[in-house]
Lab assay of single mutants.
Amino acid sequence: KPRVVLAPEEKEALKRAYQQKPYPSPKTIEDLATQLNLKTSTVINWFHNYRSRIRR
């Protein structure tokens, strides 16, 4: 699969959402995906990867 490249404003929106709730509910994930015009799997993976990046 080709890698999804996020626009800077999409990254900022995801980071703001992460600061509010690092483990978002499925509803929140769905809303974010719709709002940013991304797949839910992309949003889920971003949160998973961002949490692991923060832990390093």
Rank of each mutant, 00 (worst) to 15 (best):
K1F: 07
K1N: 06
K1M: 00
K1Q: 07
K1S: 04
K1L: 00
K1D: 15
P2Q: 14
P2H: 14
P2N: 15
P2A: 10
P2M: 14
P2V: 12
R3N: 06
R3W: 06
R3D: 04
R3S: 06
R3V: 10
R3K: 13
R3P: 05
R3G: 12
R3T: 06
V4Y: 02
V4H: 07
V4Q: 07
V4L: 07
V5Q: 11
V5E: 11
V5C: 02
V5D: 11
L6Q: 07
L6E: 06
L6D: 02
L6Y: 02
L6S: 03
L6P: 03
A7H: 14
A7T: 12
A7P: 09
A7C: 14
A7E: 08
P8M: 08
P8H: 01
P8N: 10
P8R: 07
P8I: 15
P8V: 03
E9F: 02
E9I: 03
E9K: 13
E9V: 03
E9Q: 14
E10Y: 01
E10L: 11
E10D: 08
E10W: 00
E10R: 01
E10I: 15
E10F: 05
K11P: 03
K11F: 07
K11W: 06
K11D: 01
K11H: 09
K11G: 04
E12S: 06
E12T: 03
E12P: 02
E12Y: 05
E12H: 04
E12I: 00
A13P: 02
A13S: 03
A13K: 12
A13M: 13
A13F: 02
A13H: 01
L14G: 05
L14S: 04
L14H: 03
L14V: 04
L14W: 00
L14C: 00
L14T: 03
K15N: 05
K15M: 13
K15G: 04
K15T: 09
K15V: 11
K15Q: 02
K15D: 11
K15Y: 05
K15S: 03
R16M: 12
R16C: 01
R16N: 09
R16G: 07
A17L: 09
A17I: 05
A17D: 06
A17S: 06
A17W: 13
A17T: 03
A17Y: 06
A17N: 02
Y18V: 10
Y18S: 08
Y18W: 10
Y18M: 05
Y18T: 01
Y18I: 05
Q19M: 15
Q19P: 04
Q19T: 13
Q19K: 11
Q19H: 10
Q19C: 06
Q19I: 04
Q19V: 07
Q19Y: 03
Q19S: 11
Q19D: 09
Q20P: 07
Q20A: 10
Q20K: 13
Q20F: 06
Q20R: 08
K21H: 01
K21I: 08
K21L: 09
K21Q: 15
K21E: 15
K21W: 11
K21Y: 13
K21R: 09
K21M: 14
K21C: 14
K21P: 00
K21S: 15
P22K: 08
P22L: 02
P22M: 12
P22G: 04
P22D: 07
P22R: 06
P22V: 04
P22F: 02
P22H: 02
Y23Q: 13
Y23R: 10
P24F: 14
P24C: 01
P24H: 00
P24Y: 02
P24M: 15
P24S: 05
S25T: 07
S25G: 11
S25V: 09
S25H: 03
S25F: 04
S25Q: 05
S25W: 14
S25R: 09
P26M: 15
P26C: 15
P26V: 10
P26I: 03
P26H: 05
P26R: 12
K27R: 07
K27C: 00
K27T: 05
K27Y: 04
K27A: 05
K27Q: 09
K27V: 03
K27S: 10
T28I: 02
T28N: 14
T28A: 12
T28S: 10
T28M: 14
T28F: 06
I29L: 09
I29K: 03
I29Y: 15
I29S: 02
I29T: 08
I29N: 00
I29W: 11
E30C: 06
E30W: 14
E30L: 10
E30T: 13
E30A: 14
E30M: 12
E30G: 12
E30N: 00
D31P: 03
D31E: 08
D31R: 12
D31M: 11
D31H: 02
D31L: 12
D31C: 02
D31Q: 11
L32K: 04
L32C: 01
L32R: 01
L32W: 08
L32M: 11
L32I: 01
A33C: 03
A33K: 15
A33F: 08
A33I: 12
A33H: 08
A33Y: 08
A33G: 06
A33L: 11
T34C: 09
T34E: 10
T34G: 09
T34R: 11
T34H: 15
T34N: 02
T34A: 12
T34D: 06
T34Q: 06
Q35E: 04
Q35V: 06
Q35D: 01
Q35C: 06
Q35M: 15
L36S: 01
L36C: 01
N37G: 07
N37W: 10
N37S: 11
N37R: 15
N37A: 11
N37F: 01
N37D: 04
N37I: 00
L38M: 15
L38V: 05
L38T: 06
L38P: 02
L38D: 03
L38G: 03
K39R: 09
K39L: 09
K39T: 11
T40S: 09
T40F: 13
T40L: 12
T40G: 06
S41Q: 13
S41V: 07
S41D: 12
S41H: 09
S41G: 07
S41Y: 02
S41L: 02
S41F: 03
T42D: 10
T42R: 13
T42G: 04
T42H: 02
T42P: 00
T42S: 08
T42N: 10
V43I: 15
V43T: 00
V43F: 05
V43W: 06
V43K: 05
I44Y: 03
I44K: 14
I44T: 07
N45C: 00
N45Q: 10
N45D: 09
W46L: 01
W46G: 00
W46Y: 04
W46K: 00
W46C: 00
W46T: 01
W46F: 07
F47V: 02
F47C: 02
H48N: 15
H48Q: 10
H48F: 00
H48M: 05
H48S: 12
N49K: 10
N49I: 01
N49Q: 05
N49L: 04
N49C: 02
N49A: 06
Y50D: 00
Y50R: 04
Y50G: 01
Y50K: 04
Y50W: 15
Y50I: 11
Y50S: 02
Y50C: 09
R51S: 07
R51K: 13
R51M: 14
R51V: 11
R51E: 00
R51Y: 10
R51N: 04
S52D: 04
S52N: 12
S52C: 08
S52L: 12
S52H: 12
S52Q: 08
S52W: 05
S52I: 07
S52A: 11
R53L: 09
R53Y: 09
R53N: 07
R53P: 04
I54L: 08
I54P: 06
I54K: 05
I54V: 15
R55Y: 05
R55M: 14
R55T: 08
R55S: 12
R55F: 06
R56A: 12
R56P: 08
R56Y: 01
R56T: 14
R56C: 15
